[in-house]
Amino acid sequence: MFARPQWVILLLLVVAGLVWWRAPGGERQLVRTALIMGTLVELKVFGTNEDELERATAAAFAEMRRVEALLTSYRPESEISRLSRAAGPFIVSEETAALLQRGQLLARQTGGAFDLTLGQLKQVWGIESDRPLVPSQAELQAALTAIGPEALQIEGRSVSKRSAELQVELGGIAKGYAVDRVLEMLRQAGVTSAAVNAGGDIGLLGAKQGQPWRIAIQHPRKTGELLTVLPLVNRAVVTSGDYERYFERNGIRYHHIFDPRTGSPARGCQSVTVVAADAATADALATAAFVLGPQQGLRLLERLPEVEGLLVGRDGGIFQTSGLQREEP
């Protein structure tokens, strides 16, 4: 039927076919992690050219480090730290001015539940130090002096504080903003499918191989268990909770999300997850809704366009916006 050389050629074709079939498909996933902005940042990127993906992820991490150097209060030379030390009007970059304006708008929209000026409050609690403490009422009142949505006057690149002692703190928006910048860098590099997770602040670019990304939400009281799973495309998800950054004194848990009205940790929620078009907005709104508590927080999220949310009240009750789609874990 076949001559000998034809058998050998046929055999080689079969082997080549099997090797081709075993080879990875056209699109690959690259996963990279880095420690930036005091948290673990995980980047998942899909594409066909691994070298290009490597370059894109390296550029994305570099962008996040740039944002860290610009906006974090634990870097003494960041613009935000220098603004906090300034006694009079201070000139910031256009980028910082734009983010401060966005933050101020969100502060107004949330009735001050989100606040850009809680730096002093964070310091008196020492919440991120190795010796956190419960401040006195007098210390709390001093830390709350002059804070609020109108505490900063922003005119172009010039920022004036209502009080020289006012400390600007972008912890409730900067990480989300950095996630947005990472996605923008990836988009510019031609990536169409990616996800970035910066310690729970998640940004999604496109879908995952034609399917929605499946974003799990941590149960606030059962370590290792999931509350729900959200199928999402091109969205940002941020969760604020009382269960990771906290300390205990005399059986009371003191966490890191402060109510600007009292200066103490907000007590209405165990966790709040917000889904929005961008991570900076989701970040700020998750903090605000947590501060407002489940009922008021839910009303806030319901009235904002392109925003959904899932709130766990202090007794474990679950509240969600009408448009949120979720699945059982």
């Binding site: 997770n197 990304w213 874990p329």
Partner: peptide
């Protein structure tokens, strides 16, 4: 795992 990323 059943999910792609965990928000917490």
């Amino acid at each position: 795992q059943g999910y792609d990323l965990l928000s917490r």
